[in-house]
């Protein structure tokens, strides 16, 4: 049937347009990340560096979304299937928050109560051993 044939062609064109769009988005995001990375090398302001790092993390998450949603086609799957994959992964929200907080707290506690640890991290140059 000629009707279903043109339908197929329209679908193909749509899919190719989507692949092209996502490729461009991924490349642009990567280039922006690299520009920010190069810019960061010459910076000294802690606050600005932190802001740039935050931007880079947001771009990283956006790239991950585009790869999973379009290249891996998850966006076109049945909603129930999407949920069985995405809901368990939401564990990462706790996982990242809790562990980074714990690491930071461990550093503060060691700097406060472990003079040896604090002194070791002020010695310039390579370790003798």
């Amino acid at each position: 049937m000629s009707h279903s044939h043109t339908d197929q062609e329209a679908h193909n064109a749509e899919a190719m347009a989507e692949i092209k769009k996502v490729t461009i988005i991924l490349s642009v995001f990567t280039i922006v990340e690299l520009i920010l990375g190069f810019w960061m090398i010459s910076l000294t302001s802690e606050a600005l560096i932190l802001a740039i790092k935050g931007t880079i993390v947001i771009l990283m998450m956006a790239k991950a979304f585009y790869i999973v949603a379009y290249f891996m086609h998850l966006k076109h799957e049945v909603k129930n299937l999407i949920m069985t994959i995405v809901v368990p992964l939401s564990l990462f929200v706790w996982f990242i928050g809790a562990f980074l907080w714990d690491g930071s707290s461990f550093r503060d506690l060691r700097n406060k109560y472990n003079p040896y640890f604090k002194e070791q991290s002020t010695i310039k140059g390579a370790r003798s051993s």
Binding site: L91, F95, L100, S104, F106, R110
Partner: peptide
């Protein structure tokens, strides 16, 4: 999904150790 947790655990442990070092 399970592999994502393996890599996630690796990268988060990297972050934790980095955050706990001066």
């Amino acid at each position: 999904m399970s592999d994502a947790f393996t890599f996630g655990a690796f990268l988060i442990s990297y972050g934790t150790v980095r955050f706990s070092t001066n």
